[in-house]
Amino acid sequence: MPPITTSPLPAAEAAVPRRRVWLRPAARQKLLAFASLLALMVFFSFASGSFLQVDNMVSILQATAVNGVLAIACTFVIITSGIDLSVGTLMTFCAVMAGVFLTYLGLPLPVGVAAALFFGALSGFGSGLLIAKLKIPPFIATLGMMMLLKGLSLVISGTKPIYFNDTPGFSAISQDSLIGDLIPALPIPNAVLILFIVAIVASLILNKTMLGRYTFALGSNEEAVRLSGVNVDFWKIVVYSLSGAICGVAGLLIASRLNSAQPALGQGYELDAIAAVVIGGTSLSGGTGTILGTIIGAFIMSVLTNGLRIMNVAQEWQTVVTGVIIILAVYTDILRRRTR
């Protein structure tokens, strides 16, 4: 009987799937985005000695917290192959409504927090209703909602900021540091902690729940989902309502950071949020996307904006650079779709 020999073939075959996982387009996009983030940080570190200072790092984290939460809200909508242009003004509207309940009515802090989340979800429900039931294209429906919410914020506030000076603990939502109390060397603001909590919950929803499965399914092939007997309109409305509630969290963060609800603020935030989502690998055609990629994209946008400001680049040129980044992100998404 000939001796039994082992072949290296099984080991080679076992290595193939592992290689394929690392070479998947989604994994490549996240690695590329993370490498771009590191490259930006290295560049701005050499360009300005003040970039890596603690105060500046905290400022970047604060800015990323707001934009990151808005980007997470956009991620759900974009995965369904939709778009939401109202997230910036919805954030402001939620901040104003929190001001109405806390400052004008003098109600307790938990009531104001609940009001921001409720009106965010309600506005998202309205957008979802327009899109799912009235069949208005998402771009037009959310554009109209953006203008509606902007007007409501100005009307309700009387075009004046609403301050939270008489609301104990409100500024702590964003500015205090629970982590810093435990580890003094890490004065990470609560806003960043909230961002990562929202990111973890959103990731679990996308990957572990029925809502997440239908979110991806709607973006992949909505008609096939409809023909399989799923109530597509219901799930689409749920997605937009959830996105609106997440915008309510962003409203609380920015109001706490400024210690006021600024009714004229918000428009333009949607562009940074959508850019962060696309840079992070979520396809504008729907069906693919990750929360981790979105967070990386949000940090890229914040580091870029902060670095340009540190280098004293004029505001108008910062806007030009942001526009170029958005165009490149969309073009990269088109190239990714062509290679599939």
Rank of each mutant, 00 (worst) to 15 (best):
N207C: 01
V320G: 01
G120P: 10
A35S: 15
A121R: 10
C247G: 06
K133N: 02
N207D: 06
L152F: 13
C94Q: 13
L308Y: 08
D233Y: 00
V192I: 11
G49P: 00
A250L: 03
I194V: 13
V313E: 05
D84N: 14
V77I: 14
I237A: 01
L32C: 15
L258H: 09
V324P: 00
F196N: 07
S177C: 01
V96Y: 11
G287H: 09
L109P: 05
R213D: 03
T322H: 10
V201F: 13
G251N: 10
P161F: 01
P8I: 13
A185M: 10
I300G: 10
I194Q: 03
A185S: 14
A71E: 07
A261W: 08
A95N: 12
S174T: 03
V77C: 05
I254D: 08
G169M: 07
Y240E: 02
G112D: 08
L117E: 12
E316V: 10
L218S: 05
P25M: 12
I140L: 15
T294V: 08
V249W: 09
A261Y: 07
A273F: 06
G158Q: 01
F299A: 10
P110H: 06
Q53H: 11
L37G: 09
G248L: 11
A12W: 13
V249N: 09
Q318C: 03
G219V: 05
S171C: 00
S177Y: 02
G280Y: 12
P263D: 11
G49E: 11
T89S: 15
A11I: 10
I246Y: 06
L122T: 13
L23Y: 11
A245P: 09
L38R: 11
P187T: 06
I296L: 13
Y163C: 00
A98H: 12
V277L: 02
A250K: 03
I131N: 04
S157I: 04
R24M: 14
A14R: 13
F164Y: 04
V313P: 05
T80Q: 05
D272C: 04
D181T: 13
F46R: 07
A11P: 00
I254T: 15
L90V: 12
V201N: 05
T6P: 00
N67K: 12
T80E: 04
T332H: 13
K160C: 00
V321L: 02
L102T: 05
M210P: 00
L328H: 03
G88K: 07
V225F: 01
W22R: 15
M301K: 12
G180V: 03
G297C: 09
G248H: 11
A250W: 02
F46Q: 10
Q262H: 10
V113A: 11
A65K: 05
F101Q: 09
V201H: 07
I140T: 09
F139K: 09
V54D: 05
Q262M: 13
A276D: 01
G219H: 06
G180R: 02
I237C: 01
M145F: 06
S302D: 10
F44P: 04
W22L: 15
P25C: 12
V192W: 03
G151P: 07
T290F: 06
A121E: 07
L284M: 14
T64C: 13
T167G: 01
L148N: 04
K208P: 02
G82N: 11
